[in-house]
């Protein structure tokens, strides 16, 4: 199957026929609603393929959206809401995995790869300039050069 069509199909299965956020879910307080939307974008719809609950129309996603809004209205902080959702649904629900032992490689990969690549670059650059430096004169050559130069200076005087 064509790649994107798979994706679109999978997403449509969740997205249609209604919309993700319906007017009746929207909180009266715009600030609180904005926080709810931002949090929803970070939480995964468990029954969909790679979709946040903000985009999904699945029943479960709707329940989660309502849950997030309920917690926010009860005065929870963003972190507290996330913690609560994770405690109920597990870490699978987080679209941005937490930084911990089992995600160490995941989060470390970009930096590690960049540093590894950069050090290879520096080492090979050093090696290359090393070759150029390799044209340094040996002591005998230096002595001969000095002699020639001093002769030159003497003759100029």
């Amino acid at each position: 199957m064509i790649r994107r069509s798979l994706l679109i199909l999978a997403m449509l299965a969740c997205a249609w026929p209604a919309f993700a956020v319906n007017p009746d879910e929207v909180l009266a307080d715009p600030a609180l609603e904005a926080r709810a939307r931002a949090l929803s974008a970070q939480l995964r719809c468990m029954v969909c393929q790679n979709q946040s609950i903000d985009d999904s129309n699945a029943e479960l996603a709707k329940d989660l959206r309502l849950l997030v809004r309920e917690r926010l209205e009860n005065g929870d902080s963003d972190d507290a809401v996330i913690d609560y959702v994770v405690s109920r649904y597990g870490e699978f629900v987080l679209l941005k995995p937490r930084f911990e032992t089992k995600t160490l490689i995941l989060w470390g990969a970009p930096l590690l790869l960049f540093l590894a690549g950069a050090s290879v670059m520096v080492v090979s650059a050093r090696r290359r300039t090393g070759k150029e430096v390799g044209t340094n004169l040996t002591p005998e050559e230096q002595a001969r050069l000095d002699a020639v130069l001093s002769e030159d200076e003497q003759s100029r005087r």
Partner: peptide, 18 residues
């Protein structure tokens, strides 16, 4: 056996920084 998700927020952050 641990199930985690890696979604848009992760990629936006790491890819954007790079």
């Amino acid at each position: 056996g641990a199930k985690i998700s890696v979604g848009a927020p992760f990629f936006n952050m790491t890819f954007g920084l790079l």
